[in-house]
């Protein structure tokens, strides 16, 4: 006999697993600090690529100005501007990435807590069902 409540709970759990297979389940493999650190490292890499591309596009759009600056005797201000703008750019994106990583981790924790509660409920249902079945079988044996 199929227990309807247990069936609905299992359907809910399966849907949750399917929905969060790339989200909460992946994040739950990490500690919070590790996950945030990975997010920041990944962000550093991607932000650097984005900065180089953006710099390239800006140089192409203003090629004449850039070449005239390079031809001038002192290129240190250009390098200083590049470094400062890079630090600001990466800094802004790192803050965004850090906040998003923390938010995702907290969401994952609440999702996984709910999932574990549901799993525990399912376990209780199975144990109850097992005891009832075993109790019935013992009674049948006694009657025989």
């Amino acid at each position: 006999m199929i227990d309807k409540k247990r069936l609905y709970l299992m359907i809910g759990l399966a849907r949750f697993e399917k929905k969060h297979v790339d989200g909460s389940f992946r994040i739950s493999r990490y500690y919070q600090n590790d996950y945030t650190a990975f997010a920041l490292i990944r962000n550093l890499l991607l932000s650097t690529i984005a900065y180089i591309l953006l710099f390239g596009v800006l140089v192409l759009a203003n090629m004449d100005t850039f070449l005239s600056r390079l031809n001038s005797a002192d290129i240190r201000p250009v390098i200083a501007v590049l470094i400062v703008s890079y630090v600001i750019f990466v800094g802004i994106y790192s803050v965004i990435a850090y906040i998003l990583a923390r938010i995702r981790y907290v969401r994952m924790q609440s999702d996984m807590e709910e999932y574990e509660r549901a799993l525990a409920r399912l376990g209780r249902m199975y144990r109850r069902g097992y005891h009832e079945e075993s109790g019935e079988s013992e009674r049948q044996e006694e009657q025989e």
Binding site: L46, I49, A50, L53, L54, V57, I96
Partner: peptide
């Protein structure tokens, strides 16, 4: 480069 920049700057979030 344009679409890669869009992805890197915004749509990855």
């Amino acid at each position: 480069v344009l679409y890669l920049l869009m992805l890197l700057l915004y749509f990855r979030f």
